[in-house]
Design a binder for these strands. Structure first.
Ligand code: FES
Ligand code: FES
Lengths: 144, 144
DNA sequence: TTTAAACAGGATAAATTTATCCGAAATAAA
DNA sequence: TTTATTTCGGATAAATTTATCCTGTTTAAA
C-alpha cells in the first residue's frame, strides 16, 4: 500500500507528535529506536518532512525533532503521504491508466473509486493529535 | 497500490477473458499491444498466471493464452493479486507492523482496517466475466 | 574557546522491481 | 520432414527503492 519510506514517515511523525504533545523534543536515534526503523534512512525521510514544514528540526546538542503544538491538529496523514509517496495512491487509477477518468474508465473504476475515496477520506481527516493520544495512552503501538 | 507487474497481470487477465468469452485465443504480442505493456515482462507475468492455473497457455503456431470459459466466473481479482503481489495489501498492517493484530493495533488500525476490508471485498467478489463484458461492450478500457 | 551532541546532505552500496535478450521446446501447417 | 510461429525459462541489464557511510555544519554546554 504505502512505501517503506512512507510507513517510516507516518510512524516517525506520530512518535514525534506524541512527544511534542508533552513538550518533549526527540532525537533521530530515539525515533528510530521507538518505531523500529533504520536510523540513516529515517534521517532522510525526516529531512523531507522538515522541508515540507511538517516537522521542525533543531541541530546541535539537545537538538532533535518536534512538531509545533498548534500544528498537531492540522497535520493530516494525507500531508505526510503526499510529501513522501505523492498522491497517486488516493487519486490515481487502480490499474495504472494515465489518469483516472470518468469518461474513459478502466474496468475496475467504479468499485475501485469507492475504496480509493474511503482511503482518501481516512488520510485527509485523520490528524496527528488523535493518533498521538492513542499511542501515548497505550491504546495503540508503533512497533513489533 | 498494486505493483506494475500486478497491474499488467490484471489487465492481461481481463483482456484474455474478454476474448476467451468469445472463443478467441490471444497471443502475447496481441495482449501486450492491447494493454500497453512491455512484451517480455508481460510474458513473465503470464507464466505466473499459467502456473497458478488462472490462464491456460498453448505453445506453437496458433498458440497463445486463453481462460477456460467455465472459469470466467470463478476467477476473482483477489486470485490474480494474490498470485503476483501476495495478500499483504488486503491483509497486512497499513504501516508495516509484522502482522495486523486486534490486540496490538497500530495507530491507524481501526480506520485502516475498514478501507482494507472494502478493498478485500472488492477483490474477492469481482470476477473476470463482469470486467470482460464491460471491456467488450466498450463501457470500460484497458489502455491510455 | 573547546568539545561533544545532533542534524544535513552528498556519495555509495545493497536489494528489489521492472524490463530486455536469447536459445530451447512445442506445435501446427506447408 | 521442414519450417514458421509461439510460449518457456534462464541470464542479464536498467531503474527504483531501501539502506549505509562519512564529512560538514550547527549548537549548547563545559
Ligand atoms: S480509471 Fe481506473 S480507477 Fe478510475
Ligand atoms: S495493526 Fe496496523 S492495520 Fe491493523
Amino acid at each position: 500500500m504505502f512505501s517503506k519510506a512512507c510507513e517510516y514517515g507516518i510512524k516517525a511523525a506520530i512518535y514525534i507528535a506524541a512527544n511534542s504533545n508533552e513538550g518533549k523534543r526527540v532525537s533521530l536515534k530515539g525515533i528510530a529506536k521507538h518505531i523500529d526503523s533504520p536510523e540513516a534512512f529515517t534521517a532522510k525521510i525526516l529531512q523531507i518532512l522538515a522541508r515540507e514544514n511538517i516537522v521542525t528540526s533543531v541541530r546541535g546538542i539537545n537538538g532533535g525533532f518536534e512538531i509545533e503544538s498548534h500544528k498537531l491538529e492540522t497535520i493530516f496523514l494525507s500531508d505526510i503521504v503526499k510529501a513522501i509517496d505523492g498522491d497517486n495512491i488516493y487519486k490515481g487509477c487502480g490499474i495504472g491508466l494515465k489518469d483516472c477518468n470518468e469518461l474513459h474508465p478502466c474496468p475496475i473504476h467504479d468499485d475501485f473509486k469507492k475504496v480509493r475515496n474511503s482511503l482518501r477520506k481516512l488520510l485527509e481527516t485523520t490528524h496527528l493529535k488523535q493518533l498521538a493520544l492513542n499511542v501515548h495512552s497505550g491504546t495503540s503501538f508503533l512497533r513489533v
